[in-house]
């Protein structure tokens, strides 16, 4: 199953978008149903893990913190993600590995997999941030190739597409509003963070 799309972030230049999209906390906050995204190693236990609460978010967060928690190439992350489709609300225990981050072209690729309620998925995703052709914002190109197995694939094939699109669109809309927050409150923070990469 392949999905792809584009999203325009008006008034948000690519480098700012890159900072926010590189922050697991910002991504978590923009992804509805996502309870945490955290670096994981082999000893990670889904049952016992408790995410840290009250983590400072952008734009208030300290630049050093944001820079140090930013996605790293080769790192594996654990994410707990609940997807709600009517009465069906599977909670996916998901692992994501950042395969590549291109700081110059603002391109990031990742692979992930997860399972819930007798279903599982694996995916290869990527995104690239382009400058807007007619404006000072960004155009985000994204793509995902996903393999889905189990009950959800058997019964839900016809809704996977619109639901995936909904999740992605909600995500970028939320990112956009976070960007606007950054802009409004402290326009200097992104430059500082950017300087640290």
């Amino acid at each position: 199953m392949e999905f792809d799309g584009e999203f325009e972030l008006d008034g948000v230049p690519p480098e700012k978008a890159w900072v926010v999209l590189s922050d697991p906390v910002a991504v978590r906050d923009s992804l509805k149903g996502c309870q945490y995204i955290t670096p994981m190693d082999d000893s990670f236990e889904w049952d016992s893990f408790e995410p840290e609460e009250d983590v400072p978010t952008l734009p208030e967060a300290e630049a050093d913190d944001v820079a140090s928690r930013a996605f790293r190439t080769g790192q594996k992350y654990a994410a707990l993600m609940q997807v709600g489709v009517g009465s069906v609300k599977p909670k996916f225990e998901t692992t994501v590995t950042i395969d590549d981050r291109d700081e110059e072209d603002f391109e990031m690729t990742a692979t992930g997999s997860g399972s819930a309620s007798g279903s599982s998925f694996s995916m290869e995703s990527g995104m690239r941030i382009h400058p807007q052709e007619d404006g000072d914002g960004s155009r985000i190109e994204w793509w995902t190739e996903a393999d889905i197995s189990g009950r959800i694939a058997q019964l839900g094939g016809r809704v996977i597409n619109p639901v995936a699109n909904k999740i992605v669109n909600n995500f970028f809309t939320s990112i956009e509003s976070q960007m606007t927050d950054v802009e409004e409150t402290d326009s200097g923070v992104t430059d500082r963070i950017r300087g640290m990469f």
């Binding site: 009465s87 609300k89 009950r151 019964l155």
Partner: peptide, 13 residues
Amino acid sequence: SLVPMLRFRLANP
């Protein structure tokens, strides 16, 4: 709609 989803355990309210 709910009962088939309960039956498949896709819905686990």
